[in-house]
Structures are given as structure tokens and as C-alpha cells.
């Protein structure tokens, strides 16, 4: 597998703030590489160091075989970039933006196709300033894909998008990978990272706290399977004491959750349902939940909000 991005000991500080603290990783050709992490974890800083927009304080970065600081032009010709924050002139129309940006690249895709794929044909003649947030976001994704790049950077690709658009973008991104290209993205949606990314790096306070495939990350959590149900009134204390060894009960109002280690003899759901009927407890909406990337994320980065 070809290495597309190689980062070694990357560090970036702003005054006293250490935005990225000595991180290293590689991205392989043809993979969708995701970065997740709380606000201010350093995702944008990392991605913009790779794009050559910010100058690292220390460490080496190679992207598509070049140093982004030295040979930015080579990189910009071969990589498409969507930034977390940028703009177009308010009075520039959607088609004009695509047509203009297409002229910057030697072999751009046909922007008319992108317009259709991103559901923007109706907005073709709308000025940028009159687009909704999600429509602007889609236009920026179109601009990133326009050069038909070998590598695409998407910083918060689906922020502000409705569920339909989000799924359409996932398909587009998978399509990019299917054509052998590489994608590096950041997201705050764990479901997105889990379903879309081949590998995910979890960043926290400028460091990579975990990096693996979503499945491996979830498995490594040794995560608990759980059963959730709703009760009317209170759960009798007898229910809690009758639960087997190694389970844990959490009650929030009408909602009860029973947690348990994986790899049990009797499936947790069988035990819980058995107990509920044996004790004649009325319940509804019972379901089992598998541990997911969000559980991994919260367990690694904590539950408190970051400043």
C-alpha cells in the first residue's frame, strides 16, 4: 500500500496554546481516514498543516510525496480541499464559482455533473450569499472534488447538512475512494466516522489518543452490550438484586438501562426479559444496543464539555 500522508512528531502552538502536540500517523492510498475529537482538539490545525496553510513548529509532514511548505504548488494541483471556514463573494453565482475554480486545474471534472450529484442544479444561478448553510457546504464539497484530486481533505464535511444530503455525501465520498483516491476528513458525527471511515484517529488536547478501524476501536473498548427499556412507575428493588453478577443497572426517570460485559453465557436480553416477566413488571420499548464509536469517544475523551 502506497503511503499518501506521513506525519512525524507534528507540533503546532499558538502562544501558550498547544494546538497539536507531537502527533505521528500515516494515511494509505485509497483509504478514508477520519479524525474526530472534541472542539479545540487540534483537528483543523492538523489538517491545515497537511494542506500547507499553516506552518508546523516542529515535525515532518509529507503529503503526496512532498513537503507542503516547500512544494505547496504541487500539492494544490493534486489535492482538493474543503476548509472548515471560508467563503466566496456573496454575489458570485453557484455555476460561476464552479466554472471559475475549474479553470485553475488542468483536468477538472465536469462541474455540471457535480452540480447534479450534490443536488444543486436548482441553485445554479443563485448567488452564494443567498444559499442556505447546507447549500454553501455542498458547494464547498463540490469545489473540493472538482479538480478530480488524488487526495481530498474535508474538514467537517457534513456539518449543517440534512440527513438526506449527509447520506448523499457519504456515497460521493465512497465513490471517490472507489476510484482509488484518498480522503482525509474530520467530523463530529460518530455515526459518520463509524460508517464511512476505514480508520479513525481520536484526537484530544492535541494528541492522538486512539487510532484504528472503527470496529477495532469498539472491540478494544471491551465495550458493554446493553438493554434499554421503559417502565411505568418505579422499578421494584427486587429487580436490581435479581440481576446476575457482572451487570449494572442505571435508571433515569422511566428509562432503565442494563449494562453487561460481552461474551456472556445467556444473552443479556434473555435474562432481562425473563426477570421482567417473572416479576410481573410492565415495560415497553425494550431494545438492545451495541456499543458504538460514540461510546469509545466518550470513554476516551470524557463527558465534560471542553472550553
Amino acid at each position: 500500500m502506497e503511503t499518501i500522508v506521513q506525519v512525524q512528531g507534528l507540533r503546532k502552538t499558538y502562544g501558550a496554546t498547544v494546538a497539536v502536540d507531537d502527533i505521528s500517523f500515516v494515511v494509505h492510498e485509497g483509504e478514508i481516514f477520519g479524525m474526530v475529537g472534541p472542539n479545540g482538539a487540534g483537528k483543523t490545525t492538523t489538517i491545515e498543516c497537511l494542506e500547507g496553510l499553516r506552518k508546523p513548529d516542529a515535525g515532518t509532514v509529507r503529503v503526496l510525496g512532498v513537503d507542503p511548505q516547500q512544494e505547496g504548488q504541487t500539492l494544490r494541483l493534486r489535492a482538493g480541499m474543503q476548509l472548515q471556514q471560508s467563503n466566496l463573494p456573496d454575489r458570485m453565482k453557484v455555476w460561476e464559482a464552479l466554472d471559475l475554480y475549474a479553470s485553475f486545474y488542468p483536468k477538472p471534472l465536469d462541474w455540471r455533473d457535480l452540480l447534479v450529484q450534490l443536488g444543486l442544479e436548482e441553485k445554479r444561478n443563485t448567488p452564494f450569499g443567498k444559499l442556505s448553510g447546507g447549500q454553501k457546504q455542498r458547494l464547498f464539497i463540490a469545489l473540493a472534488l472538482l479538480p478530480d484530486p488524488q487526495l481530498v481533505f474535508l474538514d467537517e464535511l457534513t456539518t449543517g447538512l440534512d440527513p438526506q444530503a449527509r447520506r448523499a455525501i457519504w456515497d460521493l465520498v465512497r465513490d471517490v475512494r472507489a476510484r482509488g483516491k484518498t480522503v482525509i476528513l474530520t467530523t463530529h458525527f460518530m455515526e459518520e466516522a463509524e460508517r464511512l471511515c476505514d480508520r479513525v484517529a481520536i484526537l484530544d488536547r492535541g494528541k492522538i489518543v486512539a487510532l484504528d478501524t472503527p470496529e477495532a476501536l469498539i472491540r478494544a473498548l471491551g465495550a458493554e452490550e446493553r438493554v434499554v427499556f421503559h417502565i411505568e412507575g418505579n422499578l421494584p428493588p427486587a429487580f436490581a438484586s435479581a440481576l446476575s453478577e457482572g451487570t449494572r443497572l442505571e435508571v433515569q426517570g422511566e428509562r432503565a438501562t442494563v449494562y453487561s460485559r460481552n461474551g456472556r453465557q445467556v444473552p443479556l436480553v434473555v435474562e432481562v426479559v425473563g426477570l421482567l416477566s417473572a416479576q410481573g413488571i410492565r415495560y415497553r420499548d425494550l431494545r438492545t444496543e451495541q456499543p458504538n464509536l460514540e461510546d469509545v469517544f466518550l470513554s476516551l475523551t470524557g463527558r465534560e464539555m471542553r472550553d
Binding site: 496553510l53 504548488q73 471556514q85 466566496l88 486545474y105
Partner: peptide, 16 residues
Amino acid sequence: MYREYGILRRLRTTPV
């Protein structure tokens, strides 16, 4: 304005 609103920033990601 192009600088303040990030219009130059967007252009800077291209080979132009």
C-alpha cells in the same frame, strides 16, 4: 473584504 471573509483563504487552497 476578500481577506476578512476567507475568500482569499479559499483561493489559496487552489493552484491559482
